[in-house]
């Protein structure tokens, strides 16, 4: 057995012990640098993920569309459990998440949102369940993670208006993302270019945190890396990591 094979074998055994969702498939972003960072090569289905913006409304909006882009690429209906009423459905459609696929559940409070999420997570065959909350306790996150694991439905907890500098308490989520708006490229004419986001993978079970500047979702929910980053020579990237 060669060295890579041994390492792969060890990795899978560790993953089996940790219970990391290798039983369910992963949804890749289609961007190799991002997918490489995630065990399984993408967003693990049948697991709990955390997504946050910041206290600025524009960052929460960016995180919303980021999330819609992920869900657009998973097949099946989506249950979006709401506490606030500011979600604007046309924007989900623009990210490729067809309005017929999304069922909005106006639960009204954190507790009810978590209840509704757990109810939804018991049902297999959904593309995903989103819950917008202000706070997520460790216990609640464990319950959601277990429910998601057993049904194979992917859960996303969207922490609204989450301050960037808070020390994140431990949750059972497999990944934690923070999405913020980033300055876009000036087109040189009085118009706006494709929006850019600062996507920060704050925590990932079985991987290292990292952040990227990406270009926002297109109509199919796909992100892209800015052209000058893609075209940059590979050594530059390596050196940056080493320094």
């Amino acid at each position: 057995m060669g060295q890579p094979a041994v390492i792969a074998d060890l990795r899978s055994r560790i993953a089996a012990i940790e219970g990391v969702g290798h039983r369910h498939a992963a949804v890749p972003f289609g961007i190799p640098p991002v997918d490489r960072q995630l065990p399984g090569g993408g967003i693990a289905t049948g697991a709990l993920h955390e997504i946050a913006g910041s206290t600025e409304l524009c960052d929460d909006a960016a995180a919303t569309v980021f999330l819609a882009g992920i869900l657009a690429r998973i097949e099946g209906p989506v249950f979006w459990c709401l506490r606030w009423r500011d979600l604007f459905a046309p924007a989900l459609d623009l990210a490729g998440l067809h309005p017929d696929r999304v069922i909005h559940v106006e639960a009204g409070s954190d507790t009810n949102v978590l209840l509704a999420m757990e109810e939804c997570l018991r049902h297999p065959g959904l593309a995903g369940v989103v819950g917008e909350v202000a706070k997520l306790s460790t216990t609640a996150s464990k319950r959601l993670q277990l429910a998601a694991e057993s049904s194979g439905t992917t859960a996303f907890v969207f922490r609204r208006a989450s301050p960037a500098d808070t020390l994140a308490e431990g949750t059972a989520a497999v990944t934690r993302w923070r999405v913020r708006a980033a300055p876009s490229l000036s087109l040189g004419i009085p118009s706006l270019g494709r929006p850019r986001w600062d996507v920060h993978l704050e925590r990932v079970r079985g991987g290292e945190p990292k952040s990227w500047i990406v270009e926002a979702c297109d109509a199919q929910g796909r992100l892209a890396l800015p052209a000058q980053l893609v075209d940059r020579p590979a050594q530059a990237e390596e050196r940056r990591i080493a320094s």
Binding site: D86, A91, L94
Partner: peptide
């Protein structure tokens, strides 16, 4: 263009 969050 339509915003992800509407202020209403």
């Amino acid at each position: 263009p339509r915003p992800g969050r509407l202020i209403d």
